[in-house]
Write a protein that binds this DNA or RNA. Structure first.
Lengths: 202, 202
DNA sequence: AACAACTTTAACCAAATGGTTAAACTTTCT
DNA sequence: AGAAAGTTTAACCATTTGGTTAAAGTTGTT
């Protein structure tokens, strides 16, 4: 059995919103991408705003879902960092525009969308931050690493997000010089892990 | 003597485009922000696209200008990194949305804007990359640091960009927990420099 | 077959948007 | 003062946009 119309629209909307952003995307784009009549967008999702809110929420959850589970596994702290980066890379290879998409949303100043989505997103971030803080403290207590504020560790690991946000720039500029984007990503993960390891190791 | 109308419009356009992005901003927003009649936007700049292209180019140059001069100063490699980060922070305190703005531009798939701006921007990036590669090689030759691919170093330093792109998220989440955004930035610069120093030092 | 519920479509609408223009206003030059 | 050039304004226009609706088509139930 094939996908329901509702899901077809939602998946098309994901692609279009991720590629063009909220304001760059039109309901006509979405309908065309889904191959359906434009009125069905409103029939199933009431409004473009509402559809975007649903897509955004799902993407945000996709992003944090795995991260939470990784942090709770009974493995060493450095393995957790390794898995976190690996998961970040995996999800970004699937949705390269994810970070751009999420950040873009926090920009529009007083839109009703922002008021609706920011609190929910901030809650996810706050939970991630709290969970990471706990795991840092645990690793410190066990003598595995030296202490580091969770925000600072998040920032040190944010280069993967930046790499994918700037994917086009990097591929344009780097392709001329031999190495592929995939290599760049793998090399960066290796380097970043090594840097973190040497800084955090007791 | 007060600012010319043309400059008033351009400065207003900068603020509006940085805040809302190309598609989120309207010529009416810009005119209102500048306090002038909307037709003047077209009188002085012909079209919204053209005005955006001018603003984008100026912002990109603002971003790379200082960076080039820093890299060419006769100081130690680590001082260069220090100054690069300091400059990155300075320009982002002035224009917190700068990175979001620049990255957002590379997203729209086949717009005439992208075809126009991406090549010029890529050239700036390529120059930055080349200059950085030269300076790395020089520092390696002089025994100051171990070798590192320029892209990887750029990525390790990109966390400052990410920090400002996500400023709203960080201020929202962090303000609840005491420390200010300024502290977060300063602390991150210190930490990042220390991490880079210990990794690159021979 | 007939009825009801759900789904899809084409046509339509109001609001917003980028852009144009002719006329009014101001400045500059002679 | 007066012509010429540059500047500003209000009104207007075509296109695009998100959204609605009535009718047509489909599916499921009795």
């Amino acid at each position: 059995m094939s996908q329901s119309t509702e899901d077809t629209i939602k998946e098309a909307a994901k692609r279009v919103f991720l590629e063009k952003g909220y304001h760059g995307a039109t309901t006509r784009d979405i309908a065309k991408e889904a191959g359906i009549n434009r009125a069905l967008v409103n029939y199933y999702f009431r409004s473009k705003e509402n559809l975007f809110a649903i897509v955004f929420t799902e993407m945000a959850e996709l992003y944090f879902q795995k991260v939470f589970s990784v942090l709770q596994q009974p493995i060493s702290f450095f393995d957790k960092l390794d898995f976190l980066l690996e998961e970040e890379i995996r999800v970004h290879f699937k949705e390269p525009q994810l970070t751009t998409f999420l950040i873009d949303q926090s920009r529009q100043p007083d839109s009703s969308l922002e008021k609706l989505l920011t609190p929910a997103f901030n809650l996810l971030v706050a939970n991630y931050r709290r969970l990471l803080a706990e795991q840092i403290q645990k690793a410190v207590d066990e003598g595995e690493i030296i202490s580091i504020p969770p925000d600072q560790l998040l920032l040190l690991m944010s280069s993967v997000k930046y790499l994918f946000s700037s994917k086009k720039i990097f591929t344009d500029v780097c392709n001329q010089s031999g190495s592929s984007f995939e290599e760049l990503v793998r090399n960066h993960k290796t380097l970043l892990l090594s840097v973190l390891r040497s800084h955090l190791s007791k």
